[in-house]
């Protein structure tokens, strides 16, 4: 299981990479493995400002559909355009080419509540 040390995580299996006042968000290696073949990423919240834990989109696998949740509050400034035609990138490279959205963070203090890589590893092994 790949759990990069430099990222922060949520209980719902999203990851977040903070870059200044912006952040990149995706789903974890564990999450993509549980979902199986991903066939459609439905995100139409670009330009919207959402609260922490609000749904920013949905991910459709062959067998299941799952909501995508904001790890922190912020404005969705970009959706990964590559996922439009190649949603399987989330399976192949969940922390790289399979990133989902870029967010302008509203309240950096919320970052403190997220899980570290170690805490996320514990969550998975619990």
């Amino acid at each position: 299981m790949n759990i990069p040390a430099e990222l922060k995580y949520t209980n719902d299996h999203e990851w977040i990479r903070v870059e200044g006042d912006e952040a990149i968000i995706g789903i974890t290696d564990y999450a993509q493995g549980e979902l199986g073949d991903i066939v459609f990423i439905d995100i139409d919240t670009e330009g919207e400002t959402l609260d922490k834990e609000e749904t920013f989109g949905t991910v459709e696998a062959v067998k299941t559909v799952s909501d995508l949740m904001m790890p922190v509050s912020g404005e969705v400034v970009e959706f990964n355009p590559a996922l439009e035609d190649a949603p399987e990138l989330v399976n192949k490279d969940p922390y790289g080419d399979g990133w989902m959205i870029k967010v302008k963070i509203s309240d950096p203090a919320e970052l403190d509540a997220l899980l570290t890589a170690d805490a996320y590893t514990d969550l998975l092994s619990a």
Partner: peptide
């Protein structure tokens, strides 16, 4: 078994 290599494959 629900899948071995991926449902699409």
């Amino acid at each position: 078994p629900i899948e071995y290599f991926g449902i699409k494959d």
